[in-house]
Design a protein around this nucleic acid. Structure first.
Lengths: 224, 224
DNA sequence: GTCTATAGACGGATAGAC
DNA sequence: GTCTATCCGTCTATAGAC
C-alpha cells in the first residue's frame, strides 16, 4: 500500500527538521522531498506550525506511553517488595527514545527530540510538551525518589535535569565524539549508548543523596 | 565613553541570537536594537555569518583561556604531588561559563554557548569551535584521566560527553525547572548550579572506573 | 485531495551619497 | 564610518481550477 500524501509529508518533515532545524527546512523543501506541493501542507496541517506539532504528536505519544507502561511493569513485578533499582527505572525511561535510533522509519526523530529542549522555536510545541512532561514527572519522580529512599526532592529534580541534558545531547550529537576525537572513536550502537548513559546517570543521581536515615545529606562542600 | 557602533552591534546580536536563535534574529532587528542600520553590519562584519562568528570570538577566547589558566594553577600547585581532585578540575572547566551568568554585559552568552552544540546552524562557527575544543581536549582529558587513575579513555570520553550535555542544558535551559515544577522550584544563583553540576558529574565520571590496579573495569552489566 | 499560480511579507546584501 | 534606498531572492499562505 502506498503511503498517503499526509504521511509522506510527515516523514519528509521529520527528517528535514532534524537535519536542518525548523526554520531552515522550508515547506518548499519538505514538500519537494515528499513529492507533493506547498498547498498540501496547508490542507492537511493548516500551517507550518501545525506540521511541526503533528511531527511531534506522531512519535511522542507512543514514546511516553512506552515509558509509562515500562514503569508499570517494573512496579507491578515487585509491588509489595523493594522498590525497583535506579538503573532499571533509568533504562525504562531512556530506552524508548534510543530504540527509535534503530528504526529506519524513525531514526531522525530522536535528534529532533533531543534538540527541542533548547530550540528557540520550541514554543511551537510547548503546550504539547508540557502536558506529556507533567504526566512523566508525576510518575517517574516519585519512583526515583522511592528507589533512592531520599526526601530531598530538590536535589533529585536537579539531577534529573542534568540527566535530561545528557540524554538530549546524546540523542542529538552522539556523532560529535567522532569529530572531537578526530576519528579515533566511533559512535556505538544505541544499546551501548544507553548502557553508558544509565551507568553515568545512576551514579550522578545517587551522588550526595544520603543513605536512608542519615542527617542533612544534600549539600556538599564548595568545590574549588 | 560611548560604545562603538561595532560593539553595540555585537551586544545586540549576542542578546537576540540567544533569545531568538540565529535565524529568527534578523539583521534588521539586530541593527535596530543597536541603534544603527543594515549596512553597518556588512561594513564591520562582512555578512551575517561574519557577525555570528564575531559574537563567539569575542567571548569564547577569554572563557577558554580562563579554563586553561585555571588548570595550570591547579597542576602547578602540586606538580610533584598527587593529581588534583576530580571535583577541582570540573569546577575549573565549568566555572568560566557559569560566572558569565552574573555579568550584566554578558549574561546572554552562556545561553548561546549551551545551545551551539546542538544548533543546526552551528556549521557557521564550526572551525572556530573545533580549534578551541582540540586545545581544551588535549589539556583536560589527560588531567581527568590522571585524576581518575584510569586507562579506559573511551569510557572517560563518553562521560565527558554526558557532562557537556548536562552543562549545555543547564546553561541554556536552567529556568525550565520552574516551568516543569510549576513554580515550586526556582532557578538558584550560578554558583549553586555549578556546585550541583560538579557533584553530579564527578560521581557520574567516576562510575564504572576501576580503582587503579583493577582488572577490566569499564563495562557493567546490561541494565534491564 | 491535489494541483498551479500568485499574493504579500520579509530576508540578506549592496550601491552610492555624505 | 555611517546612512538611505533599493535589488532580488525566499518565505508562508491562499485563491481557485480540476
Amino acid at each position: 500500500m502506498e503511503p498517503s500524501t499526509k504521511s509522506r509529508i510527515l516523514d519528509a518533515a521529520e527528517s528535514l527538521f532534524a537535519e536542518l532545524g525548523f526554520r531552515a527546512a522550508s515547506m518548499r523543501v519538505v514538500t519537494q522531498e515528499a513529492g507533493t506541493n506547498l498547498a498540501a501542507v496547508n490542507y492537511h496541517f493548516g500551517s507550518k506550525e501545525g506540521l511541526i506539532a503533528a511531527v511531534f504528536e506522531r512519535r511522542l505519544g507512543p514514546i511516553n506511553a512506552e515509558r509509562l507502561a515500562g514503569l508499570d511493569a517494573l512496579q507491578q513485578t515487585d509491588a509489595d517488595g523493594p522498590s525497583p533499582e535506579l538503573e532499571a527505572i533509568l533504562a525504562v525511561f531512556l530506552r524508548p527514545a534510543f530504540r527509535l535510533l534503530e528504526d529506519p522509519q524513525a531514526r531522525q526523530f530522536p535528534r529532533l527530540l533531543g534538540r527541542i529542549h533548547s530550540d528557540p522555536d520550541r514554543d511551537k510545541v510547548r503546550e504539547l510538551l508540557f502536558e506529556q512532561m507533567v504526566e512523566l514527572r508525576d510518575r517517574f519522580v516519585p519512583a526515583f525518589a522511592r528507589s533512592l529512599g531520599c526526601q530531598d526532592q530538590v536535589e533529585l529534580m536537579w539531577h534529573l535535569h542534568f540527566l535530561i541534558g545528557a540524554m538530549a545531547h546524546t540523542l542529538t550529537c552522539a556523532d560529535d565524539i567522532e569529530w572531537i576525537s578526530e576519528g579515533r572513536m566511533q559512535t556505538p550502537p544505541p544499546e551501548e549508548l544507553l548502557r553508558r548513559l544509565v551507568t553515568f546517570a545512576a551514579a550522578g543521581i545517587r551522588a550526595g543523596v544520603a543513605p536512608p536515615g542519615d542527617a542533612n545529606p544534600g549539600t556538599t562542600e564548595e568545590p574549588r
